[in-house]
Design a protein around this nucleic acid. Sequence first.
RNA 1: GCCCGAAUGGCGGAACUGGUAGACGCAAGGGACUUAAAAUCCCUCGGCCUCUGGCUGUGCGAGUUCGAUUCUCGCUUCGGGCACCA
Length: 826
Amino acid sequence: MLYDFKAIENRWQDHWISNASYRVAMDSDKEKYYVLEMFPYPSGRIHMGHVRNYSIGDVVARYKRFRGYNVLHPMGWDSFGLPAENAAIKNNTHPARWTYDNIDYMRKQLRQLGLSYDWDREIATCNPKYYKWEQQIFLEMYEKGLVYQKTTTVNWCETCHTVLANEQVIEGACWRCDQLVEAREMNGWFFKITDYAEELLDDLDKLGGWPDKVVTMQRNWIGKSTGLQCDFEVEGFSKEEKLSIFTTRPDTIFGVTFMSIAPEHPLLKTLLKDNPRKDEIQEFCKKIIREKQQQSNQDVIEKEGIDTGCHCINPFNGDRVPIFVANFVLMAYGTGAVMAVPAHDQRDFEFARKYQLPVKPVVIPADCELDGNSMEEASTLPGILADSGDFSGTDSEAAKEKIIEFARTKGFGDSHITYRLRDWGISRQRYWGAPIPMINCDTCGTQPVPVDQLPVTLPEDRESQQSDCAPLHQRPQFYETQCPQCGGTAKRETDTMDTFVESSWYFARYSSPRFTEAPLDRKEASHWLPVDQYIGGVEHAILHLLYSRFFTKVLRDLGYLDIDEPFTNLLTQGMVIKDGSKMSKSKGNVVDPSDLINEYGADTTRLFSLFAAPPEKDLEWNSKGVEGCFRFLNRIFRFVQNNRESIISGTEGVGDPLSPTERELHRKTHQTIKKVTGNIEHNFHFNTAISAVMELFNTLSALTGNSDKTPPGAPVVSEAVNTILLLLCPMVPHFCAELWSSIHKGSSIDDESWPSWDEEAAKEDMLTIVVQVRGKVRSRLQVAPDIDNAALEGLALQDENVQKFIAGKSIKKVIVVKKKLVNIVI
RNA sequence: GCCCGAAUGGCGGAACUGGUAGACGCAAGGGACUUAAAAUCCCUCGGCCUCUGGCUGUGCGAGUUCGAUUCUCGCUUCGGGCACCA
């Protein structure tokens, strides 16, 4: 009988589905374990990246089940998003139709992989039964002041025809289509993620189970800076019309020689009111704003500015300094105005040299003299303050605090924290997303949709046309409504929510996916969350993972969750690479998982994706390697076929006494259990786990096929075979279930528990001790494990090969490392 | 520019807290079986040399150590993140 993977895989998949084998419920005496892979966007077909991601997750789920956990392992669909709209236009169909067809197809594909999901918990985020609750969360956030509307400069992607959040702009381009984004002035809805900036930052310390890399990326993204916020009065204007700045270098405040403000700065209007050069300055501002919009984030442009002719007063020393508009000042960071200290900031320095502004050093590093006229670059080192009034002579680090303190007592400044993180803009001018549940009334203003009127559903008769305004804006039957306050005619919000909102809480909804009373069933959520192991691509290091952390904290504060962080452990798996680059249609280097499954079966496909590289590394695709895995499974299959009677007869267990070959196989079996368990527990290095099982099988087949020695008896062989099947079962479940049932009539491998190893059995009879002379290996000794150091040293010195190297030399020292080596130093 | 990672045979990758470098797999070469092929099985497989032995070898250069793929310092290359953040 050949290894008929098709029949085997079909049989077990049917079995698992019809028995709902992996359904879980809360009422269990077993400890819970929640393993989750990032859910897919239903783009049409699964790709190798999915196969890898879900294979890893399935190994974890199956392993934890074997370890006796009550494992929650759900799957669903991140099913709102732009590709559905584009495909609908192209194929003249409806996005919903396209999406649900894709889901049906991809569900089939996932089932072909034999993944152990609780399919009863499947969710699709485009289903009103899901987004209804998202709209409710939105309204509860609105009530709490965590949602607001503003008109501001946003990132616009012309190709996708929508606004993007800052996190969705990658190197100046759209995360989805790579189009360079433009800056646009637009009204939109925002989530106040900045309210949680401090907690999002602090709680990174709790994420010990996350890769450092991801934690660092989030820390940098949040970008906390502490410093001084300080007001400079503007000469000739009232005290209210002052210029407020933020600096992380208050110690350099006596070195201010000019001010730089962003071209969009609101105070500029006031400054220009009666300014004789008003037109010239306004022209300049327009020009640099335009340039900024065109410039890709990549290149640093030449510093440019214009003197406004206005001056402000440094409150510390009364210095009168000119105010410039400068192209490198960002309105979005700090206050949009920067005190310029050219002696100690490189950007200010370049600007000062260009416009011949004074350079005044005030922080003098040790053993150093600074001359403002001859300096060639800014000095950013700490030092002693000079030319700084009463603060002269103070150490610059200490001066920071003292200067802030001074400003506070005088009332013109205080310590301040600034974050790089911006609020999350969630308005999208798209159709295929969750409608934002708000209503605009001319009389009553913006009104939330009453909760009992949720969900606000999408109109189904969408016309397939691209136009400049939001698709829902073209549907009167959608937006025409009554004001919930006054009952008069009003207009619904026609923007939809960013699809990242759906994925920010789906992991929580899995705990009670059919709950009809609220977004979450608190009891279920409390039981299942947090996710113990989350697995997905590193491309979400900031985006999805930051938003999900934010939502978790919000849902906690709304009373739905009792956790601070959603994902205790995170595994970021590497990409699947072929011929040196990521598999993609445009590169023409894609391998379709379905072809592979047809040719070799799901088990081989899974096995290779786990064997070729550790999960966090990129995986180089190699079709020959797949054949190697297929061969391995075939060898095991044949072995079990050919030795079935003996394996069945040996299931009574291993007894004493054992022959030397039996001891060898028995030992290898227990060593392998130990190794595989360690590999999985420690860092999910399935590649080495699989190679260990390969070694065990190699030993088994060598010992049983060797006619020189007496082959091991049935009990030890049986133990080895059972062990191989159990250890491989998380990776190749159909294969192991099939062979298990063929040698254990009427018993299912799923009912077994993970094998444990016997430390005594795993111990080697003899140790190999390396003998080095001056650090170079000269001989190897076979010794009993309990040999003492002195005896070992003696044996080493007597060794024939060693003698050749030490003869006639005096021995300075002999180092003996227990159970490892002897090093003779001459 | 700043902040992280990584670098080991022809290839993917092993090597626990410094202690046998190259496990396991792929590819390659040789052989057995076969009329033949496929499949299967066995052997060889970092480089060099005076080849039952020796020298050398984990990106490069130093250092610490009896001993370094592993630790320290300085580079190089590649990958990732951030990027005028005041």
